[in-house]
Structures are given as structure tokens and as C-alpha cells.
Computed example of a mutant assay.
Amino acid sequence: MAEADDRTREIGAERTTARRRPAVEASKLWAGGVATAVIAALIAMVGLLITRVLLQIPYLAPIESGVVGDTDQVVRLCIISALAALAATGLAHLLLLAVPSPMAYFGWIVGLLTAVAAVWPLAFSTEPLTVGVATGVIHLVIGMSIISLVTTTATSSSTRA
């Protein structure tokens, strides 16, 4: 009888602990978000180098201007990529706290934004088609990495996802 009472207390303690645990471990989520931001910026840089060096597409500046091209625009692309990753992390955090099936909504929202970012240079750019395609592919790869990394981080840092 005493064993049953002890087990009942253990189960009650487990339930109390489970209730007190936060739905989102924000420190884990944001650490993953920062890591994703670094990766997104590096993907932007690698995409730029592949485009300019291997494919010889004059992305962000004429090829004659050097390997990297216009440094200000390169830095801007890397910073925007990192900010997009941090914004996606913020969106995931908000959705984890506020909506049912948060990762389904996250996937749709960020997936559609990635599609817009990939198609935008083709639809609204005055650059040659090769530059527009290269830009769209770089944006697509950055967006896909953000989706996969933030989704994985949010799932592992949440009890809800």
C-alpha cells in the first residue's frame, strides 16, 4: 500500500513539473535563431561567390570589378539574410505562443515569403535574366535553409510544436 502511495505522489509531482515547464524554451529558440542568422548570411556569401566566380554572372557588379564586386551590396545581402532569419525566429516564437499547429502556419507564411523573394527579381528587376535567375536561386536557398533550421529549432525548444 505504501508503494502505491509513493507512486501516486511521483505521478502528481511529474504533472506539476510538466505544467510549470514553459511551452517554449526561449533561450534555446533564440540561440538557434542566431545560429540560423549566421548560416543565412554565409549562404548569401557563398551564393554570391558561386554566381560570380564559377558561373561568371555579373551579380551585384560587373565581373571586372573583382571577385566579390560591390562590397556594400554584398554586406547588405548578408545582413538582410541574417535579419530574415531573426524575423523568422520571432515569428516562430509568436506562433508557438499564440496559435494551434504553429509550425504549419510558420511553414506556410515563410514558404510564401520565400517564393515571393525568389520570383521578385525575375518580375521586377531591370537586370539581365541570368542575374535575376541567380538572385532568385540565392533567395530560394536562403529561404529554404531558414525554414528548415527555424522549424527544427522551434520543434526542439517547444513542448507544443
Score class of each variant (00 low, 15 high):
M1P: 08
M1L: 11
R9E: 11
E10G: 01
I11P: 03
T16Q: 08
R19E: 04
R20P: 00
R21K: 03
P22M: 00
P22T: 02
A23I: 05
E25T: 02
E25H: 06
A26I: 08
A26N: 06
K28V: 01
K28I: 03
L29A: 04
A31V: 01
G32C: 05
G32R: 04
G32M: 06
V34A: 13
A37H: 06
V38T: 03
I39H: 00
A41I: 05
L42N: 05
A44K: 02
A44L: 03
M45F: 13
V46W: 08
V46F: 12
G47E: 01
L54Y: 06
L55I: 03
L55Y: 01
I57G: 12
P58S: 05
Y59V: 13
L60Q: 13
P62F: 08
I63R: 13
G66C: 07
G66Q: 09
G69T: 14
D70H: 13
V74A: 15
R76C: 05
C78P: 07
I79A: 10
I79Q: 04
I80M: 09
A82T: 12
A85P: 06
L86Y: 14
A87N: 02
A88W: 09
G90E: 10
L91Q: 13
H93I: 04
L94C: 04
L94S: 11
L95P: 10
L96A: 06
L96Q: 07
L97Q: 15
V99E: 12
S101M: 11
P102Y: 05
P102T: 03
Y105A: 14
F106W: 08
W108S: 13
W108M: 09
V110S: 05
G111T: 00
G111P: 03
V116T: 06
V116K: 09
A118Y: 09
A118E: 10
A118L: 08
V119N: 07
V119E: 07
W120V: 10
P121G: 12
T126N: 09
T126I: 05
E127F: 05
V131G: 07
A134Y: 06
T135P: 00
V137D: 07
V137Y: 11
I138D: 07
V141S: 09
L149D: 00
T151R: 12
T152A: 14
T152Q: 10
T153A: 15
T153W: 12
A154T: 01
T155C: 06
S156W: 13
S156I: 10
S157P: 03
S158W: 00
T159I: 01
T159E: 02
R160W: 00
A161D: 01
